[in-house]
Design a protein around this nucleic acid. Structure first.
Lengths: 225, 225
DNA sequence: TCAAAAGTGTTAGATTTACACCCATGA
DNA sequence: TCATGGGTGTAAATCTAACACTTTTGA
């Protein structure tokens, strides 16, 4: 292969994943103690280096798969982080991605094997390098995305109650929502379908279970929550 | 310096700039014919390689400075572009940045020396590699930013008329605005100050010139257009 | 029987949109 | 004198936000 840019310097490229989950009415992310130098033992996002035979998106997918065993997960790029001093080892530029998963899809045994934990986004400790900044930006992007596109369902089981959905939106946006107004808006979105199944776990009376109909959404994408 | 990550592959990193200007009621960007192989002669964004002694942001600033001689320009990262086939030469990952400048600040002679031209965003030709996609994303981010933060002024002279401002917002958003409603909203933003200067160039009657007061904005940042 | 969550409509207030005419001036 | 762009207020319509009680059932 011809080399065109031989006079220019190359850098190490990594990806770091901000993996969001929703559990116990809390928005959480996965972090673990760093298992390599430099920074061994510090809290950190899960990441990996980009190979020369994969795109950035593919590197992010692979990294997430290594950690969770999950494929076809909703992921979006947060951005590239390239301050000179960001890695105490040598220069590494990192591209952050956020992912939305249903915590139930991530096997707890596998999680423990990788030494990562779900921590409340409100209680994230000081992280390695610039990872706190990555989390901040990821959270902001994710908040904005959730307002305008129906991606919140990726954080919930396939079947969910309206109260679960409301709690999710309240937690992510950080403000309490009016139950009646919330349900009114849900009712206007035909792609949030009521099933005839009843959830009897979280309430005595039982609550109707709903599901997100992706196909119906594509036909009439008028999301607003 | 200790090398920690010796076993991992490095990649070439570049930055590409989407430089927006507003002139003749058109939103424009700077593009030029590529002057190096591969892709010599194709229309392209202006870019450069990231050095090992500068951050990504610094590389973007430097690249913009090389082209325009301007410093302290409003720039924001668009994102990292890392498809395997994006550069026909060898693998290059590029981080795109968009910038907002006042076209009058860019000396036309200097512009010609660099062989770049202002082209209407609506008439951008096919560009080298994935540059059209970068432009698309940059435009979207810039549109969103302009709705919620007072960055549009960076595309205008220090003194501007309300009609100029309205045309700018119409062009960027792609929809016509009602003159009275527009002015009503401007009036509510105290940081858009009326001066006692009159522009007699664009109208016979003369139009009041306004300026953006950054300090006043910081004290009461209630921007909405 | 009572605690706990599910479910359901209406109204006031705020925001947004639509709309038309007179003014000043240079050509 | 007339063509051009500058400048101004009101009212209808839409959207948003506030609000309280009844139902079901497991413990």
């Amino acid at each position: 292969m011809t080399t065109f840019y031989h006079e220019f310097q190359k850098v190490l490229l990594s990806v770091d994943c901000i993996i969001f989950g929703f559990d116990e009415n809390k928005l959480k992310i996965l972090i673990g103690k760093r298992q390599m130098d430099p920074g061994r033992g510090e809290w950190s996002l899960y990441g990996g280096f980009v190979r020369n035979d994969e795109s950035l998106d593919a590197a992010a997918d692979r990294t997430l798969y290594e950690l969770t065993g999950l494929r076809h997960v909703f992921m979006r790029q947060v951005g590239a982080f390239g301050n000179l001093d960001r890695d105490p080892g040598e220069r590494v530029v990192s591209v952050a991605y956020y992912a939305l998963i249903n915590v139930r899809d991530y096997d707890d045994r596998l999680r423990e094997e990788h030494g990562v934990e779900w921590v409340d986004i409100e209680d994230v400790p000081e992280l390695y390098s610039d990872h706190n900044e990555m989390v901040r930006q990821a959270r902001k992007l994710m908040q904005r995305k959730m307002k305008t596109e129906p991606v919140g369902f990726k954080l919930l089981p396939d079947l969910f109650t309206l109260t679960q959905l409301q709690r999710l939106y309240e937690t992510v946006s950080g403000e309490l929502l009016d139950k009646r107004n919330f349900r009114k808006r849900v009712k206007e979105m035909d792609f949030i379908e009521k099933t005839d199944l009843i959830d009897k776990v979280t309430s005595k009376r039982g609550a109707a279970l709903f599901r997100f109909n992706k196909k119906a959404y594509k036909e009439d994408p008028n999301f607003k929550l």
